[in-house]
Nucleic acid binder design. Structure first.
Lengths: 166, 166
DNA sequence: AGAATTAAGGTTATAGTGTAACATAATGTC
DNA sequence: GACATTATGTTACACTATAACCTTAATTCT
């Protein structure tokens, strides 16, 4: 039973999924790479929520959806492809994967991760990017990639926490 | 044979190790926690180089040093203690651990990781810290911790790369 | 279209990372 | 010294990921 709770109860999550699938199709088409049905299925599963999902969770979801048994390499290969094309990100601190909402724009992996509800949202800040470049440059380091994982409480979990404490 | 190459050939790495051990002893003493010989040994092994080391590598190093066999929980418990006390950091993207050069100052885990020589150095930038806080605040997110892992080339590997290409 | 080539996926086995649970030993407290 | 607490030893296992090899599907070439 992998009907995960919606990440944000106030939004129609179906749109997130269909948007992600549509732009993935278009993007793969433009790049001449193949978004096979397996890859698309994995992408769709990743997008079932805004919570990062582990490879083995995805594997179980795949198996549940398809009667046949699914082995780790099947899901890892699909994940590798999706990572390669920037359609998903990997959250290192969680060994988990999450859909990328803006795969057309090349960017680094920067996330706000709620320690209460597990939702992870991408963070984009030009100032932050610049700070990284500057700080690295101060050390004479030439940057090829970077990842930021920020843990804390999302706005709605902060609100819940406040209510609790009264 | 775990005599790893020195991280920086131009410095006397013995100082790094002895400084780390000395300040760890003092710090644990002040806090009333016990830097047992096992924990100190693991800390010293972590400090054998400026390259992050995996738990199983450390386990093998421990075993080599002590005739008796060493099981995973032994090293993980020591690592947990050292992490707890801020004496080491964990590099999530590498599943590896590295000594903290400034354990007395509470700080987040920010690293520059050379993809050529594997050396990881801590990055401290007030501007960067502020950028994170600001960016999170823009999203209404309350931050409890964060980690930054920047991959690229350290100055000396950049120099080598330039020489190579001539 | 058919053969050759390449790419994707299936299958088995195993490597690498981390923890649970319980037993023993060491340390600290009264 | 008896007791409680903390640390370590030990066994077993869970979770994450990849290697290697085989089969199937898609693409390319003539």
């Amino acid at each position: 039973m992998y009907t995960l709770a919606k990440a944000c109860s106030h939004h129609n999550h179906g749109h997130c999924i269909s948007d992600a699938i549509n732009s993935a199709r278009q993007l793969c088409d433009e790049r001449g790479v193949r978004l096979t049905s397996l890859r698309e299925q994995v992408l769709e599963l990743v997008w079932q929520s805004h919570k990062p999902l582990g490879a083995y969770t995805l594997m179980d979801m795949l198996a549940e959806a398809s009667t046949r048994r699914v082995a780790p390499p099947t899901v890892y290969r699909a994940l590798d492809f999706l990572l390669e094309e920037g359609l998903i990100h990997r959250i290192n601190s969680l060994n988990a994967f999450i859909g990328c909402p803006s795969p057309t724009q090349k960017h680094q992996s920067h996330f706000l991760i709620c320690q209460n509800c597990s939702v992870a949202v991408e963070l984009e800040s030009q100032a932050l990017n610049q700070s990284i470049i500057d700080a690295a440059a101060d050390s004479g380091f030439s940057v090829t990639s970077h990842s930021i994982e920020i843990n804390g409480l999302c706005p709605s979990c902060q609100a819940s926490a406040n209510k609790e404490s009264k």
